[in-house]
Design a protein around this nucleic acid. Sequence first.
DNA 1: GTTGGCACTCTCGGGCTGAGAGTGCTGAAA
DNA 2: TTTCAGCACTCTCAGCCCGAGAGTGCCAAC
Lengths: 338, 338
Amino acid sequence: MENRKQAILRAVVHEFTTSAVPVGSQALQSRYFVNLSSATIRSELADLTDLGYLTQPHTSAGRMPTDSGYRYFVDFLMDLEPIPDRVHGFIADEMRKAPADVQGMVERVAMTLASVTQNASVASAPQGSFAHIKHVDLVSLEPKEVLLILLLEGNLLRQQVVSTSEPATQAQLTKLAARLNAALAAHSSDDARRHYDKAPLGLEKELLGRIITVLDLYEKGSESLVVHDGVRNLLRHPEFAESSRLTQVLEVLEETRYLTMLLRQLIGESNLQIVIGSENASSQLQGCTVVLTTYGPSERVKGVLGVIGPTRMAYSQTVARLQAVARQASDRMAELGV
Amino acid sequence: MENRKQAILRAVVHEFTTSAVPVGSQALQSRYFVNLSSATIRSELADLTDLGYLTQPHTSAGRMPTDSGYRYFVDFLMDLEPIPDRVHGFIADEMRKAPADVQGMVERVAMTLASVTQNASVASAPQGSFAHIKHVDLVSLEPKEVLLILLLEGNLLRQQVVSTSEPATQAQLTKLAARLNAALAAHSSDDARRHYDKAPLGLEKELLGRIITVLDLYEKGSESLVVHDGVRNLLRHPEFAESSRLTQVLEVLEETRYLTMLLRQLIGESNLQIVIGSENASSQLQGCTVVLTTYGPSERVKGVLGVIGPTRMAYSQTVARLQAVARQASDRMAELGV
DNA sequence: GTTGGCACTCTCGGGCTGAGAGTGCTGAAA
DNA sequence: TTTCAGCACTCTCAGCCCGAGAGTGCCAAC
């Protein structure tokens, strides 16, 4: 595409994302192209419309980008907006104040992201594809009821109440826990499974079975933690003035099953993913753009972090800030060993 | 108030809460008072308006209840709507499927409540005013870094990374954990504090200090867990058609600080609390009613469960279902020892 | 106290209209 | 060939009017 067309497309995207009003040839001329006439710009706009990058709500209105227009913009024209120091500082502060467990950390990350992008945010807890056991503990609740506490890599605590077929005292359980720790610490679920196969019938085998169940749940991610925040930010945007638009987004956010799926798709794919309007598989997200990236304490343990907003979002700012939050959150998590 | 006035007020509340349209004398006559003329009803309506229980959006519109009207209704006229078997069954199912930890349980309870009342819900985790320690565990992360795991009454797990001044091996930590367990198990934070005072300088005292910090945080509730769900249900109601109304509610829900305060007020007060429209301290909840009750596994460990909806809500149904969810959730938590 | 009758009030949707914004086209200038 | 001023045209939007409809308050009669 010629340079001038690109410049005009960039100007339309910039103007429309800030004002939310279809932008006309005169506005472009006076604000971006003073040494061009509005008629010239009009003919370029007509070309861009023919190419499918722009559209008008009605014949005598200004132009606004189509989904393809946004796509061209983010692929070829966008350069990341530098992040002000106070925003960097804000993110750092929030990360410093975040609690040292996964749940609390993920919630704080989602909150921070929503706040700095002024849109809704989603975050899934970082997860390795293999669970490694760091520590096992057993607490007697009732004579035949044991609380199994598992500490996984990433300081992730799991608990489960196990009803055993034979009674056990706390002393017996403590001894058993020590044995399990010696056998399992720093080992993967496959190792646990081998131990299970070898173990004689009895309490130890029962507990090993439950440990494997917990690890399976974790690895399949079927109980994965997904949080969202900042829905109120969406209401600032005129595209959500009538509530029906918001209903659809809320259905996606509050119905975590779909969200989990959406986020899981990204893991393993490219590091930054931008899904614009009709590119969304879900019909409820038409008119919305989802920007996703991965984050986590290490290369092997990754979660997904994302921003959801109207297609008319400040792309360069959103992407820059999303990446900044992801980076700082990852650093902080690595530091905390979370 | 005369019986007939009461009957008419009840009819207006019933009609308006189901239709959301101001109700006129003819509608009342044909549906509720066939042996009265509409003129008679009109004069009664005029009286009720003078008493401040009803209002009209404009002179030639029907009547709708004022906040005082709703107040009179819930105080004197409301009788709880029986709950259909399938709703009871649904609640029971959800409770059975809930995970056996506080976090998961609270989320499931909020979800269930939102679903059966078709409004937004809030829930805070049940909390005792005194924290009792059930079990302590120590895991070595780095030579001078220890993960402190506390199991509190209610199978509530707390974790905290502690940087120690002297290095310790896992074997030493295991021994220390056993000593702490013997000293602290089934003891309150006061006991922990006494132990701390007596302890000689060193690792044990450092860890005891952190244990006390965790208990303090828990007891002051400053890190208390509050979740909400079902915001999408609010969008069904015409009063949230334009988004500004929803913005305000979302600010309250997503800004958990205020919500925590609101919920904490209830603990210790009467078992059921209904806050109607202007009775809300928060200006953002004008036009909304909050219905709250307590729940929890035992008398000593209580959380708050609530429904937030428009003042025009089906009060008798909401209260009945809220209480049903609270009861079943409490039973389930007692059963799980959560 | 209750009721039918009646005049009155107010909203709401539809249709009309003029202002305004923005377009596409055309023919001339560079 | 590109640019551009001029112009006719299109479409929205806010404002206005208007009639239908819903509901009221009041009053006189029972």
